[in-house]
């Protein structure tokens, strides 16, 4: 799968990149929503997006709002966030995503969730 990972915590980004590369995926990493938007604007088709919420420059919510206007808007999105009650918060604001994982999480749990999207 082509997986876009958007995360400003560089250690977590590195860990996820390593893990999913080892599993045979092609990883595109971005430190914030702006870098991610520029990648998808190059018409790089992603099979899955893993997105943090609170990031500098362009946040996860702005990324998801703008990505919802993109031709590839049906790409599944897994949100990872330390935001308390984040899932309800995003739904209340009509942010479109497929799965919410609260930080901190085990990488094996994330692998399990990602596997479910690899069909």
């Amino acid at each position: 799968m082509n997986i876009l990972i958007i995360e400003d915590d560089l250690m977590l980004l590195k860990l996820m990149t390593y893990t999913f590369t080892e599993d045979g995926n092609k990883i595109f990493s971005a430190n914030n929503g702006l870098e991610a938007l520029e990648m998808v604007e190059d018409n790089q088709k992603m099979d899955l997006i893993i997105c943090d919420i609170m990031m500098p420059v362009v946040s996860g919510v702005t990324f998801m709002s703008l990505f919802n206007q993109h031709p590839f808007k049906n790409t599944p999105i897994i949100v990872i966030s330390a935001l308390k009650d984040g899932e309800e918060f995003l739904k209340k604001h009509n942010i479109v995503f497929n799965h919410f994982i609260e930080k901190p999480f085990g990488i094996s749990y994330l692998k399990h969730i990602v596997k479910g999207f690899n069909k």
């Binding site: 702006l34 919420i53 420059v57 946040s59 919510v61 702005t62 709002s65 703008l66 604001h93």
Partner: peptide, 25 residues
């Protein structure tokens, strides 16, 4: 500081205006 306050403000601006929001620490 990128915080819950800046995120809430970001979301309200996204919903109610036509601006693209950038947040800096």
């Amino acid at each position: 500081n990128v915080s819950m306050f800046s995120l809430q403000l970001n979301m309200e601006i996204n919903e109610k205006s036509n601006y693209t929001v950038y947040v800096y620490n």
